[in-house]
């Protein structure tokens, strides 16, 4: 039954392709209400999480900065991630979820900014996410390996994992990659965990010698671990389809006025260094998204 949620979005696309959902708040209504509703992923340190009952994280701080810049109060909506991004866009940007009738976010963060994804067609040739505007790239994300130098001094190539155990999150690209690369030779040394944080803890508990996951998550875990023997490697990843990608935001297609206003703020924050500071506060490397790298 696992594929069902994925297809839900197609139904509305097909039946009422251009209808604007009544619950999408136009820019003027947002301003009048004094509140900006921003959707962020739950339990997703260092980007968005709760600590001692308080919302924290790079995306939470960014949402706050954006709300401040528009003179609005921030209201966070926590996303329970679906199987794919399409599910989250459907649940928070254009359709909502039947368990939360009437609830949509004005803005969703951590939405990849990728032309190919944006232009993806569904099975009947229509744009799969035509009700969503994806804009405002603010970070480049990538896959990364962290290793414990006490047991694995150096990762010259991914081939060392023929001899060393490595932890990954279940149902993730690192899992797919390490299970299949080099004809599956690394598969037996790949241990699966429910989260990257659990894999990291297993490395600290000497159950695995390394972890592969999102660089942002690993940066944060290293930042908290304060253990100089745990290091990020700089090896290459042969045959890894997409080693880097850019992270941006999304609003409803009818709400370009909001995306334009926010776009300007994001650009300012990147150019004056405030964006980098948000990431540094959580020990996360800040890498400019491609749009800004090309300008430099």
């Amino acid at each position: 039954m696992r594929w069902l949620p994925t297809i839900v979005c197609w139904v509305l696309c097909l039946c009422v392709p251009l209808a604007v959902d009544a619950r999408v708040r136009p820019y003027d209504d947002i301003v009048a209400s004094g509140v900006l509703k921003v959707a962020v992923y739950e339990h997703f340190a260092p980007y968005s999480f709760e600590e001692n009952g308080k919302a924290r994280g790079v995306d939470v701080d960014l949402a706050q900065a954006l709300a401040d810049s528009l003179g609005l109060k921030l209201e966070l909506l926590w996303i329970v991630p679906g199987e794919k991004l399409d599910d989250d866009l459907r649940n928070f940007i254009w359709k909502g979820h039947y368990l939360r009738p009437g609830v949509l976010a004005d803005l969703m963060l951590r939405v990849p900014y990728d032309k190919d994804y944006r232009n993806q067609r569904n099975d009947v040739g229509e744009l799969a996410n035509e009700q969503v505007v994806m804009f405002g790239p603010y970070q480049r994300e990538r896959w990364q390996v962290v290793h414990d130098t006490r047991r694995l001094p150096k990762v010259d190539s991914i081939g060392v994992f023929r001899l060393h155990r490595i932890g990954v999150e279940l149902e993730s690209v690192p899992s797919f990659y390490l299970s299949t690369v080099f004809g599956g030779q690394l598969s037996a040394n790949t241990d699966h965990f429910p989260t990257t944080a659990a894999a990291f803890a297993a490395m600290q508990g000497e159950k695995v010698d390394a972890v592969m996951g999102l660089r942002g998550e690993l940066d944060w875990l290293l930042f908290k671990a304060k253990d100089a023997e745990l290091k990020e490697s700089d090896n290459t990843y042969p045959n890894l389809g997409q080693p880097t990608w850019d992270i941006g935001m999304a609003v409803h297609e009818s709400n370009r006025q909001l995306s334009n206003a926010i776009d300007m703020q994001v650009e300012d924050m990147i150019n004056d260094g405030r964006m980098a500071k948000l990431f540094e506060a959580y020990g996360v490397h800040y890498e400019l998204p491609g749009l800004y790298q090309d300008l430099e």
């Binding site: 991630p81 990849p112 990728d114 994804y117 896959w143 993730s172 690209v173 797919f176 999102l214 389809g241």
Partner: peptide, 10 residues
């Protein structure tokens, strides 16, 4: 091209 919780996915 697919994504899941801010990460590239297959």
């Amino acid at each position: 091209v697919t994504y899941k919780k801010g990460a590239a996915y297959l």
